[in-house]
């Protein structure tokens, strides 16, 4: 439970952050900026890991993890969770837009029908 405390803390905090992303609504522009900065950071880290493979192991040992490969796996797990959270949010947004669109269409058709074929009743107002 208490061995390798550093990496456990880092990973747990990331999981909490991802969960918060799922349940809190975030401001659009800032959210996008953060996402892009994270992407840039990811690219830089990937390049560094390719150029200096030993760096991974050194960072891993600094965090209390044995091998660089293990650190990579942990990192990927958290990033994947984040990806799931982000795409869930995006899905919800799209679903909302599609719903609004479908609703407008349905209402237009219904109001159109009732005014065309049936003068009294539908428009009491």
């Amino acid at each position: 439970m208490l061995d390798q405390p550093v990496i456990k803390l880092v990973l747990l905090v990331s999981v909490v952050v991802v969960t918060a992303m799922l349940t809190r609504s975030t401001a659009g522009v800032r959210h996008q900026a953060v996402r892009r900065l994270l992407l840039v950071g990811f690219v830089v880290l990937a390049a560094l890991a390719i150029l200096f493979p030993r760096l991974m192991t050194q960072v891993a040992q600094l965090l209390g993890v044995g091998r660089g490969a293990d650190l990579l796996l942990y990192g990927l797990t958290v990033v994947f969770l984040g990806y799931v959270a982000a795409s869930y949010r995006r899905m919800r947004q799209l679903e909302q837009q599609v719903t609004t669109l479908a609703r407008e269409l349905a209402l237009r058709a219904a109001v159109h029908d009732s005014t065309e074929h049936d003068p009294p009743g539908a428009h009491d107002s």
């Binding site: 719903t99 479908a102 609703r103 349905a106 209402l107 219904a110 109001v111 009732s114 539908a122 428009h123 009491d124 107002s125």
Partner: peptide, 15 residues
């Protein structure tokens, strides 16, 4: 979604 659509209809097409 169906409930919301129905309520919109009542609000917009009737009094």
């Amino acid at each position: 979604a169906a409930l919301q659509t129905g309520m919109r209809f009542v609000l917009e097409a009737t009094d």
